[in-house]
Amino acid sequence: MIECRAPQNPQEYEQYYQLRWQTLRAPWQQPLGSEQDELETQSVHRMVINEQGQVIAIGRLHFTNHNNAQIRYMAVADSFHGQGLGRVIIDALEQVAKKFGVATITLNAREQAVGFYQKLGYQGDLVSHVLFGEIKHIAMHKLLKSAISKHPLAVKELEHTWHTTIPMSKAMGINITYYDQKKLVTTCDLNINKNLHNTMFAGSIYTLATLAGWGWLALQLHEKQLQGDIVLAEAEVKYLSPVEGIAYATTSDKNELSEFTRLKNGRNEKVTLTVNITSGEKVAAQFIATYVVKNRKMN
């Protein structure tokens, strides 16, 4: 039985990169290390492992901007071709992309692999580049359906509220990329939220997380046709690692959907939420906050 997941320890990453090098670099006499680039730490990695613990297929996804991502470094071990493992990797990467609200996935397919990607819904026939002077690549893309399409008006109204009543949110370029009633994902423009180390400014992380939690509550109220004024009562943020590349604030799956019983009974409601700031799939900061939804009749 095979398993598809992210590498979980240094040993698995070593196998992951070794297969990438052996398949995509070694045959063209490229040195060990040439199989990696500067985007590894901010990317999503997937690998297929067989029952013997061998890494037999790999692929990577990285975010190129707020709504777009690129698949790179697809490889299947030579003795495992023809078993559908490439499709397994693509499906896994697309599922991650959808959860972050990616609208378009691009890739540069080696000429002999174009048919494979066409069967998976990718389109394109223009040459993007020629690698090592001989490997022709074709630029291809695929459109993904956004979960926001289920709630376009509510999401649009929430973004409008942010940008008109909280000027900082507009200046930071904060917008919503995904919402499915249970989870909300927001992002911002890293180019205007950097610190001197070229990573995301701590104050921007805090603001992005605050609005993600606030927005999730606002949409929950909208779903239940309730009204209330949301304020942040207290919060704690843990900065775990630098945020490089595109950052996403994602409300945790562990957040309980509130029934707002106290609010319905004419009282204020207190809700505690967790929001994760991710760089790639890695949680770079964790925000735990308590919001109060004030009953407007009491205030």
Rank of each mutant, 00 (worst) to 15 (best):
I2F: 15
I2W: 13
I2C: 09
I2D: 09
E3Y: 08
C4I: 15
C4R: 10
R5L: 10
A6H: 12
A6V: 08
A6T: 13
P7C: 07
N9H: 12
N9M: 07
N9L: 07
P10L: 04
Q11A: 14
Q11V: 10
E12Y: 04
E12C: 10
E12S: 11
Y13N: 06
Y13M: 10
Y13V: 04
E14H: 14
E14P: 08
Q15N: 14
Y16V: 00
Y16E: 05
Y17K: 04
Y17S: 01
Y17F: 15
L19I: 05
L19F: 03
L19A: 00
L19T: 01
R20A: 09
W21Q: 05
W21I: 02
W21S: 05
Q22F: 00
Q22T: 02
T23Q: 07
T23A: 11
L24W: 04
R25G: 03
A26C: 01
P27L: 00
W28I: 07
W28P: 08
W28Q: 00
Q29P: 01
Q29E: 14
P31R: 07
P31E: 10
L32G: 00
G33H: 03
G33W: 02
S34P: 12
S34K: 10
S34N: 13
S34I: 00
E35M: 03
E35Q: 14
Q36M: 15
D37I: 12
L39F: 14
E40H: 12
T41P: 02
S43A: 15
S43K: 08
S43Q: 06
V44W: 11
V44G: 09
H45C: 07
H45F: 06
H45R: 06
R46D: 01
R46Q: 13
R46Y: 11
M47L: 14
M47V: 00
V48G: 06
V48Q: 04
I49T: 13
I49Y: 01
I49L: 08
I49H: 04
N50I: 05
N50F: 09
N50V: 05
E51W: 10
Q52D: 15
G53Q: 11
Q54T: 05
Q54K: 13
V55P: 03
V55W: 09
V55M: 07
A57F: 04
A57W: 03
A57R: 03
I58L: 03
G59M: 01
G59E: 00
R60D: 01
R60Y: 03
R60W: 08
L61Y: 10
L61R: 11
H62P: 08
H62E: 03
H62K: 10
H62G: 09
H62D: 09
H62F: 15
F63S: 10
F63P: 09
F63G: 05
F63H: 11
